[in-house]
């Protein structure tokens, strides 16, 4: 799959944002006054920024509001609702934190739950796609949620929880990669099933339907860069998990969080780029490319 920058930015930032908002909602970090304004503002900025980035991927963004209509079936629609609900439900909490209104924390917990649901919905946009076997797996929500939790915990200056979540994230990522590597084969789609010609013999591509390019080739059949997948996996894991852990363990608290979050974010981008670049769509079978 083509790792479109807008989609990478969207999933990474909004994941981090909703993770952080969830932590704020539960009071894991409890800023007050103008600090609260900026801290909550930061959380909102990440979440909303991510969402806005996602619209750059649209062919007709002016109709984006229509995306709320299909919550019954569409995870993207559900995500839209969940995101808005999260942002709305947490707004009074944020206001209360800023202005000291003393709203009961219960609201925050509901918001945190919604934030988790939002991240889950985001992940399900990918996990539901059966045609991309690497994505069509429960490890995908796990990875997305673990990223949100680990990032949120780090931003919330909660090293213990952050360490725990980073460990979970590490395991989730490993699991996702391991399961993902066998997913395409396990899904059972081959050029033989794609064409039904397996009953005659072994099919292979003779000529493509066009020598010119097309949307499918650009969007779904991305073969560049996969060669370096293993190196990139190490980098992703190192930056998203190992580096933050070391900095949380070794550096003074304030610096540690900044360094940890920065590394983690870069690692998240690498992981997300790989998440797309490594994912093979079954349509590639028709083109003899995956």
């Amino acid at each position: 799959m083509n790792p479109a920058p807008s989609v990478i930015v969207f999933t990474v930032l909004s994941g981090l944002g909703f993770g952080f908002l969830a932590c704020l909602g539960t009071g894991l970090l409890h800023p007050t006054g103008w600090t609260a304004f900026f801290v909550w503002g930061f959380g909102y900025a990440l979440a909303v920024g991510g969402l806005v980035a996602s619209t750059f991927h649209l062919g007709n963004p002016q109709r984006a509001l229509l995306a709320f209509s299909q919550w019954r079936t569409s995870w993207l629609s559900r995500e839209a609702w969940a995101a808005v609900a999260t942002l709305l439900v947490l707004a009074p909490v944020a206001l209360s934190d800023w202005l000291g209104l003393g709203l009961p924390r219960g609201f925050g917990w509901v918001g945190a739950g919604l934030a988790a649901v939002t991240v889950l919905c985001t992940s399900m946009i990918y996990a539901q796609i059966r045609a991309v076997p690497r994505w069509h797996d429960w490890s995908v929500p796990l990875v997305f949620l673990a990223f949100a939790a680990a990032g949120g915990a780090m931003l919330s200056f909660h090293p213990q929880l952050a360490m725990l979540m980073l460990v979970v994230l590490a395991m989730a990522m490993l699991l996702h990669w391991r399961r993902g590597d066998g997913a395409f084969a396990k899904a059972g789609s081959t050029l033989s099933t794609a064409t039904g010609l397996g009953t005659i013999g072994t099919p292979s591509v003779f000529e493509l339907p066009h020598t010119g390019g097309n949307y499918l080739l650009r969007e779904m059949i991305y073969v560049v860069g996969r060669r370096h997948a293993h190196k990139l996996r190490t980098i992703a894991a190192g930056l998203a998990v190992a580096a933050p852990m070391f900095s949380l363990l070794l550096l003074p608290e304030g610096v540690a969080v900044v360094v940890a979050v920065a590394c983690h974010l870069v690692g998240a981008f690498v992981q997300r780029w790989l998440f797309f670049a490594e994912a093979e769509h079954v349509v590639g079978l028709y083109y003899g490319k995956r």
Partner: peptide, 25 residues
């Protein structure tokens, strides 16, 4: 009603959908 998000093209195993680059649908 199409926003051109491309999700349906991802969901189709057969490559039957192409986003039009001009119209964005």
């Amino acid at each position: 009603a199409c926003i051109g998000c491309g999700l349906c093209a991802w969901a189709c195993p057969y490559g039957a959908r192409e986003l039009d680059m001009d119209a964005g649908v």
